[in-house]
């Protein structure tokens, strides 16, 4: 098991969002977190990254307890995170953004290798490597955000709504790239509003509402499930 969240409760200040959540992810899986707005999907990712207040529970990654690690140490352990809203560094160039993604890489050759890997996945970024990231199109900014998180070659990559603000065509492209990344050995945990589309690409999912897990199963089970039908697909 790569990631094991045990009985997690978390929130922000006085606000309680998550209640007793347990999630398990194996190496090589693509898992999606779905549910209505405010269900607490993003809070799960933020809790893993030390960006929400945890009041209860434990998070194990690769059999190590990472529950109370500070945010900046997680990438070192192999957890990458693409936060919601394509938060690239707008005043820095594309290449500088990627170099920040590889901030902890000490060897120049390793950094160059990682850059080549990302440019291989996203050729458009290579062409624009000297441009300011803020001037890229929405789709390219999302590519940059994903590429930046891949610079450290994480074991687990978490993405918060990668389809947000993208056209259906671009969203498909993003998910196709994500599948490719999985085939190369990275495990993926994705929060997604676009359920219908996400279920076509993922193995399993958890359905959340009001801070609790309501259902978990394979993507086929999630598509068939009656609760799902009531809340989304109708």
């Amino acid at each position: 098991m790569l990631l094991h969240i045990e009985n997690l409760s978390a929130g922000y200040g006085q606000l309680h969002v998550l209640e007793n959540i347990s999630i398990q992810i194996d190496v090589g899986e693509i898992v999606v977190l779905i549910g209505p707005n405010g269900a607490g999907k993003s809070t799960i990712l933020k809790s893993i990254f030390g960006l929400a207040n945890k009041t209860q529970g434990r998070i194990l990654f690769d059999a190590q307890d990472i529950t109370s690690l500070p945010t900046y140490t997680l990438i070192e352990h192999g957890v990458g995170f693409v936060p919601q809203g394509r938060l690239i560094f707008p005043t820095m160039t594309v290449q500088e953004n990627l170099e920040i993604g590889g901030y902890l890489i000490d060897h120049k050759e390793t950094l160059v290798e990682s850059l080549e890997y990302v440019f291989g996945l996203f050729p458009a970024l290579k062409e624009k490597k000297r441009e300011l990231a803020g001037n890229l199109s929405g789709g390219q900014q999302q590519q940059l955000a994903i590429g930046r998180a891949l610079m450290m070659r994480p074991k687990l990559l978490m993405l918060d709504e990668p389809s947000l603000g993208l056209s259906p065509k671009l969203t498909h492209e993003v998910f196709q790239i994500l599948q490719k990344i999985r085939e190369e050995g990275t495990t993926l945990l994705i929060v997604e509003q676009n359920v219908r589309l996400a279920l076509r690409y993922v193995d399993r999912g958890y359905l959340l509402s009001n801070g609790k897990i309501r259902f978990s199963g394979t993507s086929k089970e999630l598509s068939d499930e009656k609760i799902m039908h009531d809340s989304y697909l109708s």
Binding site: P70, T71, G101, Y103
Partner: peptide, 24 residues
């Protein structure tokens, strides 16, 4: 410099900078 880049990243968005491994 690496520090200069880390500084600019922190200035752009300190939360994302720390996600990238920068001790802000």
């Amino acid at each position: 410099t690496k520090f200069g880049k880390a500084m600019r990243a922190t200035a752009d968005n300190d939360e994302v900078a720390s996600i990238m491994g920068i001790n802000t």
